[in-house]
């Protein structure tokens, strides 16, 4: 399977075998396929050329900075918004011409989940079960099951207004799962979750993918996505980044974080030595990131810096591959 605009799945996950057709989507169909999707709001081109496939049985990360069109793209995939051009298929159904078929196969979790504050989580879930046409007994069982799974059972009969932000976020996930969707679209699902809930979210997403579902997660918390995603789609200014560019970005020299007690002298040193650098993600600490081919280069740089009286206290490789790719792609912004 070719995966344009996405990274190759990690080898150990490929070893898990093809997705179980019975548990999730149908065989022979790509979970989500977007081709040349564009959508403008007046003069603003929110989505301006998105092409990617999200395979069944895998977690696909949708990565991009704020305003890159992630939320708009998810609205189009959920069948709520019509693209100006291009086509979107969800589980093999066109989101425009087969809107109902497509959207009933999708579980969409928006970034801001509005709950009906007066209703209990059980009522909210069974209302959505009813809205998806589940029979009464089934939706009751499903509500109980999901509340248990997402550790909300103790709030099952309390009004939703007493839930904390993280608990509401979990309820939002349960809501998106109530009809056992073949395709799950999650918009920033981890925001507001505590570390333990994030780990549980990761496990849930992995389990769903294992069972054959197509999971598409948008986030800018990159380290967290790295642990869960099989492939990634990068969005920048409403466009998917061309696959050769992401591939190139992923295989370039590694970035190293360098921090010094006096960031100004570090930057002056680098500039004087004509070494290219960019501000790191913790730029307020004066962190810089320098691309280096090998640990030997790093060691050399460190020695030279110390010799030049730069008070370096930290030098370490940039941790995640996603973050590196992300930064490599965002270089053009500056």
């Amino acid at each position: 399977m070719t995966l344009p605009a996405s990274l190759e799945p990690a080898p150990e996950r490929l070893a898990a075998g093809p997705p179980d057709a019975e548990a999730g989507g149908r065989t022979g169909v790509v979970g989500v396929r977007a081709v040349g999707v564009k959508r403008a709001f007046g003069p603003v081109k929110a989505v301006d050329g998105v092409t990617f496939d999200a395979p069944q049985g895998a977690v696909t990360a949708l990565i991009g900075p704020n305003g890159s069109g992630k939320t708009t793209l998810l609205l189009i995939l959920a069948g709520l918004l019509r693209q100006d051009s291009g086509t979107v298929e969800v589980s093999g159904f066109d989101t425009v011409s087969q809107n109902v078929e497509a959207r009933t196969r999708v579980g969409w979790m928006p970034d801001a989940f509005g709950a009906w504050d007066a209703l209990t989580p059980t009522e909210i879930l069974s209302t959505f079960g009813q809205a998806y046409g589940l029979p009464k007994a089934r939706r009751r069982a499903r509500a109980a099951e999901l509340l248990e799974r997402l550790h909300l059972a103790e709030f099952a009969t309390a009004p939703a207004r007493v839930l904390s932000r993280g608990q509401k976020q979990r309820l939002g996930l349960a809501r998106a799962l109530v009809h056992e969707p073949e395709v799950l679209l999650l918009d920033e699902p981890a925001s507001g979750l505590d570390p333990r809930s994030r780990i549980e979210l990761r496990d849930i997403l992995r389990d769903l993918a294992q069972a054959g579902a197509t999971v598409l997660v948008s986030s800018h918390v990159l380290t967290e996505l790295e642990e869960v995603c099989d492939t990634a789609v990068f969005l920048s200014r409403g466009r998917t980044i061309a696959p050769d560019r992401t591939a190139a970005a992923a295989t370039t020299t590694r970035g190293w974080r360098i921090r010094a007690l006096d960031p100004a002298s570090l930057r002056a040193f680098l500039d004087a030595a004509d070494i290219p650098w960019q501000a790191g993600s913790a730029a307020s600490d004066g962190e810089v990131i320098v691309d280096m081919a090998s640990p030997e280069s790093a060691s050399q740089l460190l020695r030279a810096a110390v010799a030049a009286n730069v008070t370096v206290h930290t030098i370490a490789p940039v941790s995640g591959q996603l973050e590196e790719t992300y930064l490599a792609l965002n270089e053009e912004r500056r």
Binding site: V100, W108, A112, H179
Partner: peptide
């Protein structure tokens, strides 16, 4: 009102017409 509360779109995304 539902649109502002963020509850309309999730309902529209279901099977409901």
């Amino acid at each position: 009102g539902d649109r502002h509360a963020g509850t309309l779109a999730t309902l529209q995304a279901t099977r409901l017409s």
